[in-house]
Amino acid sequence: MAFIKNISSNGLTDNELLVTYKQNGDVAVLGDLYQRYMDLVYGVCLKYYKEPETAKDAVMQIFEELVEKLKKHEVDNFKGWLHQVAKNHCLMQLRKTQKVKTVEFNTELMQSGENMHLDSVLEKEENFKKLAGCMESLTGDQETAIRLFYLDGKSYNEIVAISGIEWNAVRSLIQNGRRNLKLCMEKAIAAESTNDIYLTKEN
Rank of each mutant, 00 (worst) to 15 (best):
residue 142 Q to S: 14
residue 171 R to S: 11
residue 168 N to F: 02
residue 154 K to D: 07
residue 158 E to K: 01
residue 141 D to T: 08
residue 147 R to I: 04
residue 171 R to G: 11
residue 126 E to M: 09
residue 158 E to D: 08
residue 169 A to H: 05
residue 155 S to V: 03
residue 166 E to K: 08
residue 139 T to A: 14
residue 161 A to L: 06
residue 132 A to P: 00
residue 166 E to F: 02
residue 145 A to F: 03
residue 129 K to L: 05
residue 163 S to F: 00
residue 140 G to N: 10
residue 156 Y to N: 10
residue 181 L to T: 10
residue 149 F to E: 03
residue 178 R to V: 05
residue 153 G to M: 00
residue 170 V to L: 04
residue 129 K to C: 03
residue 161 A to S: 13
residue 172 S to Q: 11
residue 167 W to K: 13
residue 130 K to T: 06
residue 149 F to T: 09
residue 152 D to M: 07
residue 172 S to P: 01
residue 151 L to V: 10
residue 179 R to A: 15
residue 151 L to N: 07
residue 149 F to R: 04
residue 142 Q to H: 09
residue 180 N to H: 10
residue 161 A to I: 05
residue 173 L to A: 12
residue 150 Y to T: 04
residue 139 T to Y: 12
residue 152 D to T: 00
residue 141 D to F: 01
residue 134 C to E: 13
residue 160 V to M: 10
residue 169 A to I: 01
residue 173 L to T: 06
residue 177 G to R: 02
residue 150 Y to D: 08
residue 168 N to W: 01
residue 175 Q to C: 13
residue 176 N to Y: 12
residue 148 L to C: 09
residue 180 N to L: 14
residue 162 I to T: 15
residue 134 C to V: 08
residue 158 E to A: 14
residue 139 T to H: 12
residue 154 K to I: 03
residue 134 C to R: 02
residue 180 N to Y: 07
residue 154 K to M: 10
residue 130 K to D: 15
residue 180 N to K: 15
residue 135 M to I: 07
residue 148 L to T: 04
residue 155 S to I: 01
residue 162 I to F: 05
residue 139 T to C: 06
residue 141 D to H: 07
residue 165 I to V: 12
residue 158 E to P: 06
residue 144 T to H: 00
residue 181 L to S: 14
residue 177 G to Q: 04
residue 145 A to C: 15
residue 158 E to T: 02
residue 172 S to M: 05
residue 150 Y to R: 04
residue 176 N to S: 15
residue 173 L to H: 14
residue 145 A to I: 06
residue 169 A to F: 01
residue 164 G to W: 00
residue 132 A to R: 02
residue 157 N to Q: 07
residue 172 S to T: 13
residue 176 N to A: 11
residue 146 I to W: 06
residue 176 N to K: 11
residue 126 E to C: 05
residue 130 K to G: 05
residue 157 N to G: 09
residue 170 V to D: 14
residue 156 Y to W: 03
residue 142 Q to W: 02
residue 144 T to P: 00
residue 148 L to Q: 10
residue 166 E to Y: 06
residue 126 E to F: 02
residue 163 S to N: 02
residue 137 S to D: 14
residue 133 G to C: 03
residue 125 E to C: 09
residue 181 L to F: 12
residue 141 D to K: 09
residue 162 I to L: 08
residue 126 E to K: 14
residue 179 R to E: 15
residue 137 S to I: 00
residue 167 W to Q: 13
residue 141 D to M: 08
residue 153 G to V: 02
residue 130 K to F: 11
residue 137 S to A: 14
residue 129 K to T: 07
residue 142 Q to R: 07
residue 125 E to S: 12
residue 124 K to V: 13
residue 182 K to D: 15
residue 156 Y to Q: 08
residue 157 N to A: 10
residue 182 K to T: 11
residue 177 G to S: 09
residue 167 W to D: 15
residue 142 Q to Y: 02
residue 126 E to I: 07
residue 175 Q to I: 13
residue 167 W to F: 13
residue 126 E to Y: 04
residue 129 K to A: 15
residue 142 Q to N: 11
residue 124 K to Y: 03
residue 177 G to M: 06
residue 137 S to F: 00
residue 135 M to W: 01
residue 141 D to Q: 10
residue 152 D to I: 01
residue 166 E to D: 15
residue 138 L to I: 09
